[in-house]
């Protein structure tokens, strides 16, 4: 019974092959093995949401996924999304609205907000403030009181919908 596992996966568009400890979760794999420290280690039991990343196109809790189980998977982190420019408008809005204070929750909050915005774009709708709050309810922020974060997400949702129509 092996306690180490060979995996090959795509991380932010780059092929990565590593031998990982079976117990190593995805956040530790990203931070410790690959040096991608934009994904944060918070509670490590699935409550705080600070480790949110994309696996195969959908958001997941990085601390609740074993790296060993990801052979063949596609992983995207805040570093990848920043580099591609996919969420540049969202990041600008977070700065303008002061939606990041200490910044610990911010990368995961951006990933979760991007998930809502892409679902909204598919449906051709601007999410309500209530729907925004519901979607980010699993991402804890201890600084902002969430209001500025909701503002920023709403701003981008409205702007993107306007562009879609014109």
């Amino acid at each position: 019974m092996s306690t180490s596992v060979d995996v090959t996966l795509s991380v932010n568009g780059e092929r990565v092959a590593r031998r990982v400890e079976a117990r190593r979760h995805l956040v530790d794999f990203l931070r410790l093995d690959l040096g991608l420290t934009g994904t944060h280690t918070g509670c490590e039991h699935g409550v705080c949401g600070a480790c949110t990343v994309r696996v195969d196109g959908v958001i997941v809790r990085g601390c609740l996924v074993l790296a060993a189980s990801l052979d063949g998977a596609t992983v995207e982190t805040i570093e990848g999304l920043t580099e591609s420019g996919e969420i540049a408008d969202l990041q600008t809005a977070f700065v303008e609205r002061n939606a990041a204070q200490c910044g610990f929750c911010t990368p995961a909050m951006l990933l979760t907000a991007a998930d809502l915005l892409s679902a909204a774009a598919r449906d051709g709708a601007v999410p309500s403030r209530e729907a925004i709050r519901e979607h980010i309810a699993g991402n804890y922020c201890r600084c902002t009181g969430y209001h500025a974060i909701v503002d920023a997400i709403e701003t981008v949702a409205t702007a993107r919908a306007g562009k879609g129509r014109s």
Binding site: T3, E21, A22, D28, E44, S69
Partner: peptide
């Protein structure tokens, strides 16, 4: 908050 040492097999 780290798991104990584990074996892992894929079915």
């Amino acid at each position: 908050m780290k798991s104990p040492p584990l074996g892992y097999v894929r079915a």
